[in-house]
Each structure stands twice: as structure tokens, then as C-alpha cells.
Amino acid sequence: MSKLRLCFVKEGPAVYLSHLDLLRTFQRVFLRAGIALRHSQGFHPHPLLTLALPLPLGQASSCEVLDFETNSEEDAAALPERLSAVMPAGIRAVDCWMPEKPLRELALLQAEVTFCYDQGTPPACWQGLEALWGRESLIIQKRTKRKALADVDLRPMLREAVPVREAGEELTFRVTVQAQEPGLNPALLAEAVRLYAPALAPDFVRVRRLALLDKTGKAFR
């Protein structure tokens, strides 16, 4: 029996797989690879699979984390290759190890956010955005699970935002945000721009997760 943690990439067509689609896909990936997952005990047994931090539909990631338990002893080092061979396009396992920390200690998320401007990047865009991130609060309205609108301040959840590159119609920056309790979906930063600096509002936003970190800023293992 092994309790393992898998790091995988989700990109390309796979970014449109929902959380449930992904869980279903992983169940079958393990079966195709000939690895028997441990199942929960109960009336409707289900395989023990936990995705650390559900990825919003449409976002890519280089660092998704999946915890799972197998019935047999598995060689963690050999698993990424075995699993990748039977995965759909856009999903690729890159690393597998014995978990060092519980999932609740996952604290920070590093992501690359790209703002796309169909008419070219607006003048003084960097400065405008820097000023925005520098504000004391960035309150936007967000639908809660009960469908009501609630005010949420993004600012305390945004730890860092650094410019990365500007290429033609695209402007990319790297952010570090709180991962959970409460976590910040980096795509929401565009909402704040729409509210507080409408001239800088992008036509489209692309997000790619780069790394999951613990509270000290070290890679989450």
C-alpha cells in the first residue's frame, strides 16, 4: 500500500476539463496503467483521489497536485512515466513522491497572469497596474455559493505581483496569492482592473499556475 502525491501539468485541450471530469479521468488513467487504487469503505465505494486545489475551468497549470492511495506498493519514481503514457492530451505527470506535508499546509499559489488587449496594450499600462496593486484595498463583488453577491477584498490575498513581459497585445505578470482559506483566483484581478482602472481592462485573461508553496514560500511537498 502506498500513499503518494503526484504533480502534473494541465494545459492545452485539458484546461477545459472540469474538476469532476478530471477525477473521472484519473480513475481511468490509473486503471489503464494497471494500478489499483484504494477505495473508500462504504455502501458506494469510491477511489481515494484528492486534488489539492481545484483548478478553475479554462486555466492551465504546471503544478497540479493529486494525492492518492494504491493497494499495492508502487515505485513513485516510475509512476509519472507510466501514468503519462495513458493520459489524455494536455495532461502529463511530472513528479511523484511521498507527501511531506498535509494538504492543509498548502498556503500560497504562484501564477502567471496574461492580460490580452486586442487593440494593443494601453499606454502606461504597467504603471497603472502597479498603482492598482499598491492600493490598500481592492473590493470587488463576487457571487457566493448561495448565489448572493458579496463584497470581497482581493488586496490582502494578493502577496506579490511582478511584471514578466510585454509582447505586442499581451502583458504578463507573475502573482503570488493566497491559495486557500480563503484563496484568490488570479483571474479575479481583472475584475478589479475593470472596476478601478477601466482603461486598462483586458479583453481576455489567461492564467497558468506555476507553483504551489507553503506559508514560508518554499515549494509545497
Partner: peptide
């Protein structure tokens, strides 16, 4: 991916239906 398609997909129901890439395709 086609840029037009990239813009459309986040707005439609069940976009996974429109991208292919399944295992065995």
C-alpha cells in the same frame, strides 16, 4: 488553438465537448 475558439470556450456550457484530445483520439 484558434484564438476565436479560445475566446468562446470559457463562455459556453461544457466546453470539453469542443476540444478533442481525449485518450485514444
Amino acid at each position: 488553438m484558434d484564438k476565436r475558439l479560445e475566446r468562446i470556450l470559457p463562455r459556453v456550457q461544457k466546453p470539453a465537448r469542443y476540444v478533442g484530445g481525449e485518450y485514444g483520439a
